[in-house]
């Protein structure tokens, strides 16, 4: 099973937090607001493409709006293997943190 990289974890978590409203711009905003990390849309999209190639997320095409210059949105959703990979990665991180609470706070 795949383990996720640090930024892949952030993108997966943002997708799960946003639910049905997860697309490029909202994912970027969610990471910026919650994780206080300023990521470019290019970085978000290359990560999304990689996760989709691995089968960890799926996508579907949404509506086009005037605000977007008539371009359609691409929505993303975590797949079951994606959720499993995220759980496994977070568990591994948590296990590594055990015993380091005095240092990490």
């Amino acid at each position: 099973m795949d383990y996720l990289g640090e930024f892949e974890q952030l993108v997966m978590l943002a997708i799960m937090r946003l639910g049905a409203n997860a697309y490029g711009m909202t994912i970027r905003q969610e990471i910026k607001e919650v994780a206080k990390r300023n990521a470019s849309l290019g970085a978000v999209y290359t990560t999304l493409e990689r996760l989709e190639d691995k089968g960890l997320i799926s996508s579907w095409i949404g509506e086009a709006t005037e605000e977007r210059g008539g371009r359609s949105k691409k929505y993303f959703k975590a797949t079951i293997p994606g959720e499993a990979a995220l759980k496994q990665t977070l568990k591994a991180t948590e296990a590594m943190v055990v015993g380091l609470e005095p240092v990490l706070g």
Partner: peptide, 8 residues
Amino acid sequence: HLIGDLEE
């Protein structure tokens, strides 16, 4: 999609 997100 990316250009659409950027424009939005």
